[in-house]
Amino acid sequence: MKSEQRWGIYSRAFLGLMRRDLRVLSRELVPFLVRVAMNPLLFLFVFTYVMPHMSGGAKMSPVAGMAAAGGGGGFGTVLLPGLMAVAIMFSGIAAVALPLAQEFGITREIDDRVMCPLPIAAVAMEKIVFSAIQSVIAAALVFPLAYYVPSTPVLAHVSSWWLLIAVLVLASLVAGALGLTIGTSVQPKQIGLIFGVVVVPITFLGCVYYPWAALGHIRWLQWGVLVNPIVYMSEGLRAALTPSMGHMPEALILAMLVFFLVLLTWVGMKGFARRVLS
């Protein structure tokens, strides 16, 4: 068979899988939007609206002082890139890891998609790509929230669109690959534990609620969190959106995002193949 013919078959199958996922998502559009918006909405509401209205609120939020020192704009400015990173990562878990747990469950409903004329790695790739699309939407939703909710305006400024797009796309793909790795390495029964054991720790230790530079006084932690891919998502978005806040070097951020993308994609695909082939 000629190779163009083969690519034709593969690309139609890949698009077919995307169409199926799109149809399923479109039916769940409202729950999807609620799920995506709830976390950033509440975070912004409590920390950038409620707390500043409480007496002594600023003192309760130690980062607020630092945010001011780092260039002004309040805690909202720290939170915007961080909450986008969380939204991206949550989407990866919700779009890949949780459905996979169901699809690998008793019914094995993924079988029909695995049986389409496409290499198995490409079926896994489709999961990552479709998840990345949801991540980008989720990240975009944080913008209007960060604009309207905080009592002190957020200081966002896109210094380089290229950097923003590169970070956004890479971070979204990393989140999908992370979801694939988790979804294929955890037994379906235990998927509920994932939030407590993986999602919450990588969020809180992901430089989401504070810039990485602010960890300077806790050296061991500052080095320790470097194994967490969420750090590079938050720092990357910080570099692209709120450059006045201190952030890691841009080249390092991009390199580390590529590194985690390759690593997690490889592990996730291995796991996927192991789960569908015997």
Partner: peptide
């Protein structure tokens, strides 16, 4: 849709 998307997977 089970049948429809199966057809789409196969081109």
């Amino acid at each position: 849709e089970n049948i429809y998307f199966h057809c789409r997977y196969f081109g």
